[in-house]
């Protein structure tokens, strides 16, 4: 049944016991993203230690998909470099926009493969991407404010599809 595939145990576990949840200090940037169609919200904080993402913490209000996805993301990218985040994020985005035809790379996405079922429900893709878009946005702003670098291009949020 598709519903079981959508709500895998990993997702429900992350929803009930989210990782990195609860806002912490210090941080270099805080971003707040909402999904205007349903009102879900994420506040995300982080710092950049050179190229490395640190001090990641978040708070949010929303459905199991949006909250669990943010939780999984934080476990995947905390203490990773911006380049590593881009690879993970690109892989997750490709999975979400794959209409159920993309085979997820378990090496890269780990628990993130649990969200494969979301791709079959167009209305839920935005839920799954809420935290990821917030982190992308935070990194763009942070890097913009520090120095310009070629890497920025790979982390521009896909606004045309996800942020209507």
């Amino acid at each position: 049944m598709d519903l079981q595939a959508l709500y895998q145990e990993i997702i429900l576990d992350h929803y009930k016991r989210p990782s990195h949840r609860g806002l912490h200090e210090p941080f270099d940037i805080e971003v707040h993203h909402v999904n205007p169609t349903c009102g879900d919200e994420i506040t995300l904080r982080l710092s950049l230690d050179g190229e490395r993402i640190t001090n990641l913490s978040w708070e949010g209000m929303g459905c199991s998909i949006s909250q669990a996805s943010t939780s999984v993301m934080t476990t995947l990218v905390d203490a990773k470099t911006v380049d590593e985040f881009s690879i993970t994020s690109d892989s997750f985005l490709a999975l979400m926009h794959g209409k159920g035809t993309v085979v997820p790379d378990e090496e890269i996405l780990e628990d993130g493969v649990a969200f494969s079922g979301v791709a079959k429900y167009p209305a839920r893709i935005k839920c799954a991407l809420l935290g990821w878009m917030a982190l992308k946005d935070a990194l763009v702003q942070l890097i913009d404010s520090k120095s310009t670098d070629a890497k920025i291009i790979s982390i521009v949020p896909d606004r045309s599809r996800d942020e209507r």
Partner: peptide, 28 residues
């Protein structure tokens, strides 16, 4: 249970409901 998750299960049963802020965010 978040409304969106409830709506999803109901949809799986063939039941169409509306979930979210219903274009009345201040009311929420």
């Amino acid at each position: 249970i978040h409304p969106h998750d409830l709506g999803q299960v109901l949809d799986d049963l063939g039941i169409a409901v509306r979930v979210g802020h219903h274009c009345a965010w201040p009311l929420m």
